[in-house]
């Protein structure tokens, strides 16, 4: 798979580290245990477009939000996490 990093250009997926779903709001310090549980453990598993976090560890080392179709691997968008809204 190749991922078009906004800073480095298109690179092979072996340069990246995958984390999982992007855009999940981190609970505030006073949130309940149940809210933290959901944040840490619960994920959707879409058959289609998925917004997810990848770090370009062997390139710019920036965390990126990648919109990828889980069926076809077509990548619709990649933005630096500093530009992406939750």
């Amino acid at each position: 798979m190749r991922i078009p990093c906004p800073h480095c250009g298109e690179r092979g997926n072996d340069e990246f580290l995958y984390r999982g779903a992007a855009g999940l709001p981190r609970p505030p310090a006073d949130a309940t245990e149940a809210q933290w549980h959901d944040y840490v453990y619960l994920r959707d598993n879409p058959y289609g477009s998925h917004r997810e976090l990848w770090q370009h560890v062997h390139g710019c080392r920036r965390w990126l939000v990648v919109t990828r179709d889980t069926r076809t691997h077509v990548i619709a968008a990649v933005t630096d996490v500093s530009m992406a809204l939750s």
Binding site: R19, L53, Q55, W63, V81
Partner: peptide, 8 residues
């Protein structure tokens, strides 16, 4: 650490 700084 980079995740904490860049994302959080």
């Amino acid at each position: 650490l980079e995740y904490c700084h860049q994302v959080l």
